[in-house]
Design a protein around this nucleic acid. Structure first.
Length: 996
DNA sequence: GTCCGACCGTA
DNA sequence: TTACGGTCGGACG
């Protein structure tokens, strides 16, 4: 080694711990082996070896070694028996990764160094000093503060996770002392993790200050009697010996006997196949591809290496193995009993073909199965159509997709129908798929002379539709679609009621809620490694966009058949995963049956009185105009009131009001709370702005927008519910969103009066009372809460009484209000910051409230801690009915991201369980009404999270209400008997405002 | 035309 | 402090 060389010393052990906590908990797809740290390590090494110039290090190494701790027993233990005594065993997920990172190092052809009796840090110190002596530069790949004492002008550290180089100035900035004084600083502060004692009461700030004053530890100890602060002097004098001992513990040795000399660390060329073999074994697909490209290897020709895995304790065995080894022949056992047909040859039962194994095999096989658009068929004649339908019947499984003229299923017209079928095959997937497109309503292009006429060679609708109906309504054929609710509703409008179905979007939602989108394109890329043709590529976008009926049939075939093909393959991958993850019951009881229920609700729609809205619109316009004049007068000029930017300039610039807060982009915040504060301080303008905002909001979002959603034929408003767009299991509503119709203010409630029943009918609104707090009482098992709910006591008043010792009788409203805010805060995963904001109190006071709450209800803290722990351990939390919500970022190194995920993980089981309860109620309500002879006479129209709205004939109102209430209150049963009763309030009226 | 941030309506 | 969707202004291409 010589001047100009650059030695990289990677702190292998440190990296494992750091990466484990900083990176999302990645596991190997096939068996759940935890490999997050290994993946981070391999990616980091590859980057350093190939393009370290792109990192903040700026140079590629000439020499490199990866250093590990050998064992816990080192010379430090002889110096101080308690050294690292309070280290607990590493988490289960880490154990296999220690060995794997050593294997990875060898696969990279790099020296893997450890020496008995010494820590990795000492070896690093020794190499660093030796290399420095030759004039070479050194980069220590670590961010451990224990190594900072080694930093010199020629020795840098590199934090690979943050891509940040650490030099002398960075050490000074972080610790307030230069690197050579780090030893003294650590000697004083000690280290609770390693159990280095230090001087009690001295932290990094004090230590740095003392070192600045006295120069070094020895001088300080000699002159300690000069220190003015009583306590500090005493602590230092009493603990001088401990400080000296600590100094020896933190001082790194640079005289470790080394087997490999510096010149043995020279960087060798990579052995591509060896490295690829290892990466394939760990299933790091992206890096495998990169390495293969870089070394010009064909990765598919290289076999995965036989990597030995030491799983460590059995406790963390992969979830996939937790399923009972039930043999599967030909199909996957279905919770409801019936095996779902899958056209896969039955494997011998003796092989123990479990859902987990099938899931793994399928995932691997389909990830590599290519798509061939040239095989897609366009169906032009009845014989071909009948053959495809017969094949679907024969295999019992068909994926389908509809092509239409609109994204709105209530307005769309059917243009074409695609389907995909699976046949047995000897390839690894066990099947091959084929797909066809049936054009029905394609028109000649606009430029065509015949413009607008039906294109030639299409089977007429009157011939095609009965055949499609027979297939879709055939219960012995499983239909698979992506976002089936759309196709279901569309086909229902054509008189077809789809029976026996699966929806790949819902399957993905049940399996992977929280990990990303569930749309077809993302699922296809994720599971099939294939990017489907984009809609806009065949139909254009923006101004040039055309409806699907104008798309050329050949191009339409490629697009549409591919969608059916993708859907079928996704189903192949997802279906066994459901069984393997034991989520079939959630999917089949909470998800799939809701789909037709929602489709019917959307189809029914609700009547909106356009006259009422138009009158309101006029009133709002008048009110807003009046306020505008007053606002301009107060501001002294005209401006765009709706522009937060301009408004901020007026309020805090021109008028010079003391601005509250800034938004994250640095703009003045003009939020309602800021304006309210200013109004309370006596300013006129902010009040008027708040009022203006309310009026214009109501006008633009509701009274002006809603009439545009009235359907031209039905004259009703048909919202669209999304089953898979929240993480918690709630529904969402859009176009229009009928889950945020105003209710809190008098002005806003007028909008609700426009939602009316048909003449001769009433609207019934039935809503759960305090359902989330009841769920909290149930899951956290809080005796006072369950008792209060059992006795029907005012829950917020009870909370206030417990916390503040105020009797419920004659309780001031403000006291109850605070308790209410705290109760909600608990559900949201409370923080002192958030509660302080909500109540406009000091953070310390909010902190006191929370402390008090936890003292009175210790079960709440246990519950919150347990949810955080579960999210960290398993990566997900679950509702009382077993729905899973994943939190892949719960271990983020960013504290605010982590805290956010923790709060969400606390909230999700509560919000999600409540969502599950109302889902169950919605699924049960129709059969219950039918049994009472009220089918079709009582029609469920809307859901607003804890409220259901029905439209009922006047004569049936009295009969319907108790049924609705009873089904809702007993919705959790028989699956679950809750510790608290559920309570539902119901009312009937001719409009939503009065019914609510 | 498309995207993003600020804001605000609901549970 | 949780979960959403819609509207607007304003910046971007």
């Amino acid at each position: 080694m010589k001047k100009g060389d650059h030695l990289f010393l990677v702190d292998g052990s440190g990296f494992i711990f750091r990466a484990f906590h900083a990176l999302p908990p990645l596991t190997r797809k096939s068996d759940g082996l935890p490999v997050g740290a290994v993946s981070g390590f391999c990616n980091m090494l590859w980057k350093l070896l190939t393009d370290a110039r792109d990192t903040s290090v700026g140079v590629t190494p000439t020499h490199l070694a990866v250093i590990f701790d050998y064992s816990a027993k080192t010379f430090r233990k002889d110096l101080y028996d308690a050294y690292k005594a309070n280290r607990s065993a590493p988490p289960d997920e880490l154990i296999p990764q220690f060995g794997l990172i050593r294997e990875a190092t060898r696969a990279f052809n790099l020296p893997c160094i450890e020496t008995e009796g010494f820590e990795a840090d000492d070896i690093i110190a020794t190499y660093a000093r030796q290399a420095e002596a030759t004039g070479a530069d050194v980069t220590i790949v670590s961010s451990d503060k224990d190594l900072m004492q080694l930093v010199t002008p020629n020795v840098h550290m590199y934090d690979s996770m943050k891509d940040k180089q650490i030099g002398i100035p960075d050490v000074i900035e972080k610790w307030g002392v230069s690197p050579e004084k780090m030893i003294d600083l650590q000697a004083m502060t000690g280290d609770s993790v390693d159990n280095v004692p230090g001087i009690p009461g001295i932290g990094p700030k004090t230590a740095a200050q003392l070192l600045a004053e006295y120069g070094d530890l020895d001088t300080l100890l000699d002159r300690a009697h000069e220190i003015k602060q009583e306590k500090r002097r005493q602590a230092i004098l009493e603990n001088a010996d401990k400080a000296r001992l600590s100094r020896e513990l933190v001082r790194l040795r640079s005289d470790v006997p080394l087997v490999l000399g510096l010149d043995d660390l020279v960087l060798e060329v990579q052995n591509g196949p060896k490295l690829i073999g290892f990466l394939k074994a760990l299933q790091f697909t992206t890096l495998t591809r990169r390495v293969a490209e870089a070394c010009n290897c064909d990765a598919s020709a290289i076999e995965a290496a036989d990597v030995k895995v030491e799983w460590g304790s059995a406790a963390h065995g992969p979830d996939l193995d937790a399923v009972e080894p039930e043999p599967v022949a030909g199909g996957i056992p279905d919770v409801e009993g019936a095996a779902v047909p899958i056209p896969v040859k039955a494997k011998p039962a003796s092989k123990g073909f479990t859902p987990a194994e099938l899931a793994r095999t399928r995932a691997e096989a389909f990830a590599a199965l290519p798509f061939d658009h040239s095989t897609y068929v366009t169906i032009r004649d009845l014989a071909t159509l009948d053959k495809w339908i017969a094949d679907a019947r024969a295999t019992g499984l068909v994926a389908f997709d509809t092509e239409t003229t609109s994204l709105d299923a209530m307005q769309a017209e059917l243009v074409g129908f695609s389907m995909a079928i699976a046949d047995n095959d000897k390839n690894p997937a066990g099947v091959k798929t084929r797909a066809a497109y049936l054009p029905i309503g394609h028109k000649n292009g606009v430029g065509d002379l015949l413009g607008g006429g039906l294109a030639d060679n299409q089977i007429p609708m009157r011939d095609a539709l009965p055949r499609l109906k027979a297939l879709l309504e055939d219960e012995s054929v499983l239909k698979v679609a992506q976002n089936l609710k759309y196709d279901y509703l569309l086909m229902k409008r054509y008189g077809v009621e789809t029976k026996s179905f699966d929806d790949t979007m819902l399957m993905s939602y049940v399996l992977d809620a929280g990990t990303g989108a569930h749309g077809m394109d993302s699922l296809s890329e994720k599971f099939l490694g294939h990017k489907p043709i984009a809609y806009k590529d065949i139909a254009g976008s923006g101004r040039a966009n055309v409806t699907f009926d104008l798309v050329d049939i050949e191009r339409a075939t490629h697009y549409a058949a591919e969608d059916a093909d993708v859907t079928l393959r996704l189903w192949m991958v997802l279906k066994p995963r459901l069984a393997a993850a034991k989520l079939t019951a959630v999917y089949e009881r909470l998800e799939r049956p809701l789909l037709p229920v929602l489709a019917r609700m959307e189809e029914r729609g609700i009547t909106v009185d356009r006259q009422i809205l138009s009158r309101l619109s006029g009133e709002l316009a008048q009110g807003a105009a009046r306020l505008e004049d007053e606002i301009y007068a107060l501001a002294g000029e005209k401006f765009t009131i709706g522009s937060p930017k301009q408004l901020g300039d007026i309020l805090f610039g021109k008028l010079g009001l003391a601005g509250g807060s800034k938004t994250k982009t640095g703009q003045w915040s003009t939020s309602a709370s800021v304006l309210e504060d200013l109004a309370a301080a006596g300013f006129e303008l902010p009040r008027k702005i708040v009022d203006w905002r309310q009026l214009t909001k109501l006008k633009s979002t509701y009274t002006d927008a809603l009439p545009g959603y009235v359907h031209p034929q039905t004259k009703r408003v048909h919202t669209s519910y999304s089953l898979a767009s929240t993480t918690t299991g709630r529904l969402s509503s859009s176009e229009p969103n009928l889950q945020n119709i105003p209710v809190r203010t008098l002005e806003g409630r007028k909008i609700r009066t426009a939602f009316i029943s048909t003449p001769g009918h009433k609207l019934i609104s039935a809503d759960y009372s305090q359902i989330e707090l009841r769920v909290l009482a149930h899951v956290a098992e809080i005796p006072q809460l369950t008792q209060a709910f059992a006795e029907g006591i005012d829950i917020h008043a009870m909370t206030a009484s417990e916390m503040f010792g105020v009797p419920v009788d004659g309780m001031p409203a403000e006291v109850r209000r605070r308790a209410k805010a705290i109760n909600f805060g608990i559900i949201y995963g409370i923080s002192a910051f958030g509660l302080a904001n909500q109540l406009s109190i000091e953070r310390s006071e909010a902190g006191d409230y929370i402390k008090k709450y936890f003292e009175r209800f210790p079960g709440i803290r246990d519950y919150m801690d347990s949810r955080k722990q579960m999210a960290r351990d398993k990566g997900y939390v679950e509702t009382i009915f077993g729905r899973r919500i994943n939190y892949p970022e719960i271990r983020s190194s960013n504290p605010s991201v982590r805290a956010f995920n923790e709060r969400a993980a606390i909230n999700a089981p509560i919000q999600g369980s409540a969502a599950d309860v109302i889902r169950r109620a919605m699924i049960k309500i129709e059969p219950a009404l039918a049994e009472a002879g009220l089918a079709d006479r009582v029609r469920m129209l809307l859901q607003v999270h804890d409220e259901l709205i029905f439209e009922v004939e006047d004569a049936d109102v009295e009969k319907a209400m108790p049924i609705i209430v009873s089904v809702m209150e007993n919705a959790a049963m028989p699956a679950l008997e809750m510790r608290v009763p559920l309570k539902v309030d119901a009312r009937a009226a001719t409009n939503w405002d009065q019914a609510h």
